[in-house]
Design a binder for these strands. Structure first.
Length: 402
DNA sequence: CACCGTTCAGTTGAACTAAGCAACGGAATTCGG
DNA sequence: GAATTCCGTTGCTTAGTTCAACTGAACGGTGGA
């Protein structure tokens, strides 16, 4: 047995990797050239250019589905802008924050604290009044010379849904309170409708300029994939048709380029792992399943114990019962299970919220339905294949007993 | 059969509480002269 | 007597709880054809 492993390692070393540079395929890689987004890039440039002359640019609101290059385009512009600002000694500070990251920027307090940290202030995670944090932030911003701050809030819809829209209002307030510092906000959102339920004042100030990123079509994705694949893989190790199929997959899913890239990367990894010299179409299917599995497992892993306990209960019911499940049964099971895991059971109110959040994560599908005289509940099913379910049961169980 | 009020099992929103943290300020301790 | 450390108090955020209002379609009854 041991020899097999040794052999494998030796083989592994001798064998050439299929990849030339795997990083090119990762979703946070910034390519030199962004394809099929010229219009948007130009627009962004036009809108934020004034900050090079030390004037406050308009606030910008960018939306488009996932994987349409929003973040990429903005980051790209940010880099260029920073470079120019540096060489020309323009006092410009750009801060990029992803509001979706829990515990970083998902409440008003945490957001402002995080902003202040970018200015070298140390802000505790809790204990201070929010006003105080604003004050610290203001102080940090105050300066004798004119300067422009550009705050990029990625996935801003998540932030506002959780913490209300006053944040934006408060941030824009800074402009009137500080003489020499002006702050502009660039909001990025996946949700096209989310602007509609915003306070009109906030709405008009946030979206002084708007920019829409349409989904890529299959041909554009192909183009992008080809370009990246050229850098990422060694010559001639992709079967004909792989790129085409990959982009067709992605185009079907509302033109999500990120997904296409990930698919390609994972296919490459799988091919390599199986000691193949080329990436075949079969690898794509396999990759698709693996991605889904990894995504969900990652999502679950990073959740608190109570989440996992709820999920575990849910899955264990699902083992001996056909879908759909209802909140009541899950709560009962969960209550029974809690002592085993050494957890204090939460109230149903909270569990109800947890189920809603699991739904958001895409681990389960939950829909509120009315069962007529038999009340109202969430109807819960899961999009997962049974192999993932088994894996997840194991995972949650391990995490809970650890 | 169509219409309508009732009913149930959660959902959802709002107000409230406990836990954990930081800052503040006064009391206790230490220290050098 | 001054400087430093310690400790209790106050006021904050956040996760979770409690309370209560709300929901929406199936059930079962009613009346009309």
């Amino acid at each position: 047995m041991g020899d097999e492993v040794t052999d494998y390692f030796e083989n592994y070393l001798e064998k050439d990797s299929l990849f030339r540079n795997k990083a090119v395929l990762s979703s946070n890689h910034l390519p030199e050239e962004i394809k099929h987004r010229d219009d948007q890039l130009n627009q962004v440039a036009k809108i934020i250019a004034p900050c090079l002359r030390n004037e406050k640019p308009s606030n910008l609101f960018v939306y488009g589905k996932t994987g349409t290059g929003k973040t990429l385009a903005i980051k790209h512009t940010k880099d260029k802008l920073e470079k120019i600002a540096e060489t020309k000694k323009i006092p410009l500070k750009i801060i990029y924050l992803n509001c979706k990251l829990k515990r970083i920027a998902d409440t008003e307090y945490r957001l402002v604290a995080e902003l202040a940290r970018h200015f070298g202030k140390n802000i505790p995670a809790t204990g201070l009044p929010t006003d105080e944090v604003y004050n610290i932030f203001f102080k940090a911003l105050e300066s004798d010379t004119k300067q422009i701050i550009l705050v990029i809030l990625d996935e801003i819809d998540q932030l506002i849904r959780k913490a209300g829209d006053e944040i934006i209002y408060n941030l824009t307030r800074i402009n009137s309170e500080l003489k020499n510092t002006q702050i502009s906000i660039i909001g990025i959102s996946n949700d096209l409708l989310f602007v509609n339920n915003l306070d009109p004042r906030v709405r008009s100030s946030l979206s002084e300029e708007e920019l829409i990123f349409p989904p890529y079509n299959a041909l554009q994705i192909q183009d992008i994939l080809r370009a990246r694949a050229r850098d990422a893989f060694k010559e001639g190790c992709i079967d004909a048709g792989v790129i085409e199929k990959c982009s067709a997959f992605a185009a079907r899913e509302h033109g999500d380029a990120r997904r296409a890239l990930e698919l390609l990367r994972v296919s490459g990894e799988l091919a390599e792992r199986n000691n193949q010299e080329r990436i075949r179409i079969e690898h794509l299917d396999e990759a698709e399943e693996k991605i889904e599995r990894d995504r969900i497992i990652d999502a679950v892993k990073s959740q608190p114990k109570q989440f996992q306990a709820v999920l575990y209960s849910l899955l264990s019911i699902m083992q001996n019962k056909k879908e759909p499940l209802f909140t009541g049964e899950i709560y009962e099971q969960y209550k029974q299970f809690c002592p085993d895991a050494g957890l204090r059971p939460l109230t149903q109110r909270r569990v109800s919220d947890i189920i809603a959040e699991l739904d958001m994560l895409g681990v389960i599908n939950a829909k509120v339905i009315s069962k007529g005289r038999f009340g109202r509940t969430r109807e819960i099913s899961t999009p997962l294949s049974s192999s993932i379910k088994v894996k997840m049961m194991k995972l949650t169980k391990d995490e809970l007993s650890a």
